[in-house]
Write a protein that binds this DNA or RNA. Structure first.
Lengths: 226, 226
DNA sequence: CGTATTTTTGACTATTTTCAAGGGATGTGG
DNA sequence: CCACATCCCTTGAAAATAGTCAAAAATACG
């Protein structure tokens, strides 16, 4: 199996997708690998949701827009994450590559066969869906109740953990505007708050401003609010 | 089947839970009906997630707290909704009854058998999970990018639709503090904004302040922002 | 009917946004 | 390899939306 199970076994992980009539039929490769350049759109809000995706390398932002252009990035998808599987026929958000990115695209209509062939795949999809919901719940707490400082502290700690680079160091794959639209802030507030965190020696900002040293992880945890 | 299917058939709705060894074993009633009084706790954040629930009548708020007591209500669960099914062993939020409420409690460990007995139940669970994720995504857009006025307009329209009372009229099951903690506002802002919407003849506030007439639904839709 | 809770309203404050401008990095083509 | 252009990030000052504190009004409840 190419992805590690994130958490210990659990009854819900036994969830699989059953093919009413095609159980056990094997049919070629599981999915199609696709490559995207920085800024490329994987799909747009309202597009037919024929495919869902798993990130192999790189990163993806998924967002919704208000009619006047305000944007909310509901998630960044990193290697191993599965996204774009919808309850209805259309995608409910737009997905774009943040950098050079490879994904595996799975045809939604073949989800049933794929899982019949490989039950572990069904578990992976279900676990990822639950993980997406958990992240959404945590993020609602952040958006609704945290201050700018708490938002940035939470965000940096989450990114450091999910990107699991050398301890205490993150290279963010997204720009300030993306961070702002994810945290419900403006780019100015993001910039000011990061500068302040650096002044307080909680983080160190390196050249290019995408490199962040988490100098004082305990301090950041304390700032998170929870 | 006691709940109607919310949307038309779709491949993902074929998702079921497979019992590795117990397929087809029948074992008594599907779940246990429980009754709660206003304010009662169904479970708390951190409790063992032994059960998940389906609302029969009444309504439930589910929320998370920050260490200093700030609260974010991530969802209100209304009749037909399924909630409390977790990826991990613990509940990640607290659930309390908003009013006199009946639910069916399902033992999580029996999810697999239940679904084997009744595939439609598995579909229902999966559909409800996806619906919960969709609502969470819409709510992140609201929390991160909408103004107080837009938040209230969205909230009233959503409640009117989900409670599907007489057209253009809602009796809200929650108090101002709950609305505030759901929309990322304070009770004062909720109150002021509702008063303003009433002044603008978009809504009418009746006695008790839980009764709301949606006088100008088109106007409210326009105010939503999306 | 009286008490407790909830909601509304007012005045003031503050965090964040908006508007504006400057600085820095990156990339392309000459 | 440099110059120019573009994009991104930072900083400052003013404005605004929403929050805080306080108190009164309305409602619910025993």
């Amino acid at each position: 199996m190419q992805t590690s199970t994130i958490r210990p076994q659990h009854p819900a992980a036994a969830i699989v997708f059953r093919a009413p009539s095609l159980v056990g039929r094997r049919s070629g490769p599981a999915g199609l690998t696709q490559h995207f350049a920085k800024g490329d759109e994987l799909f747009a809000e309202g597009d037919e949701a024929d495919y869902f995706y798993k990130v192999v390398s790189g990163s993806v932002r998924s967002y919704k827009l208000l009619s006047d252009g305000r944007r909310q990035i509901d998630a960044f998808h990193l290697p191993g994450d599965i996204f774009g599987l919808e309850a209805d026929s259309d995608h409910r958000f737009t997905a774009e590559a943040l950098e050079t990115t490879s994904v595996i695209a799975f045809r939604r209509s073949r989800l049933v066969e794929l899982t019949a062939d490989d039950p572990a795949f069904g578990e992976q999809v279900m676990t990822s869906m639950m993980r997406n919901l958990e992240r959404a719940q945590d993020h609602m707490l952040l958006l609704g109740r945290k201050t700018a400082q708490e938002k940035l502290a939470s965000f940096l700690l989450e990114m450091a953990e999910r990107l699991s680079q050398e301890d205490g160091h993150v290279v963010l794959p997204m720009q300030r505007a993306d961070i702002a639209d994810h945290l419900g802030l403006t780019i100015e507030t993001v910039s000011r708050t990061l500068t302040q965190l650096a002044r307080d020696h909680l983080i160190g900002l390196r050249s290019g401003s995408r490199d962040v040293d988490l100098c004082d992880i305990e301090g950041l945890r304390h700032l998170q609010g929870c």
